[in-house]
Write a protein that binds this DNA or RNA. Sequence first.
DNA 1: GGGGATGTTCGACGAATGTCGAACAACGGT
DNA 2: ACCGTTGTTCGACATTCGTCGAACATCCCC
Lengths: 110, 110
Amino acid sequence: MSNNGYTGHMEPHEPDLAEVPVTAVLAALADDVRLQIVRALAEGGERSCGTFEFGVSKATRSHHLKVLREAGLTRTRAAGTSRYVRLRRDELDRLYPGLLNALLDPRTPA
Amino acid sequence: MSNNGYTGHMEPHEPDLAEVPVTAVLAALADDVRLQIVRALAEGGERSCGTFEFGVSKATRSHHLKVLREAGLTRTRAAGTSRYVRLRRDELDRLYPGLLNALLDPRTPA
DNA sequence: GGGGATGTTCGACGAATGTCGAACAACGGT
DNA sequence: ACCGTTGTTCGACATTCGTCGAACATCCCC
């Protein structure tokens, strides 16, 4: 019911990184779960949401992925019933050179 | 009264940067006021707490400086009734190369 | 030693955040 | 057309965070 002719998809809120305040980018990265997601994405290339196995519910996982997406850090592609997430590495490295490398460096504490 | 032979100073909680979790470092930087402080310190060298003139009370300013200090980002030296704060730039650049530069770059958004 | 300057600490308060289960939505196969 | 899979959205809840005024501490100077 309530057929408004719009079955679709709209890949929501993927802002240009250059329009996201630095503090928002840093806040997005300042969380253990999200940092693990970023690290996994950095070496994985592209992954479906369900393949992230940390100790949180799927609701929480969805929430974190949303935060990352809205901070301009990831891009999401819908395929069938799955959603594939990837890191916007090029833009990140261009705008914040060294940031990602520092986070991915195995010597970084904790 | 209560002379325990210790009138001092103990410069409180200035952890080694290498022992602070990345997420804590990022969280410390993910705030507008604190980012302004860091930027001011980066070009100022050393400043007394009172010289930071942002739109917050001195209680709030004190709080933010404490967060930065306990994240291992700043060092505080007490001199008379003032306290001088400086950025631990060398350690930061060694452990997170590129991070500070990215934050200080005038092209960084917001 | 009293007074003023500089900072810190102590509640208190509202806003934001991380977390969850349950309900919902969209798709694919059988 | 159903059902299971995958993921999002919706309250709800506890915790954390930023903010303030007021009280306290420490030092310097007269």
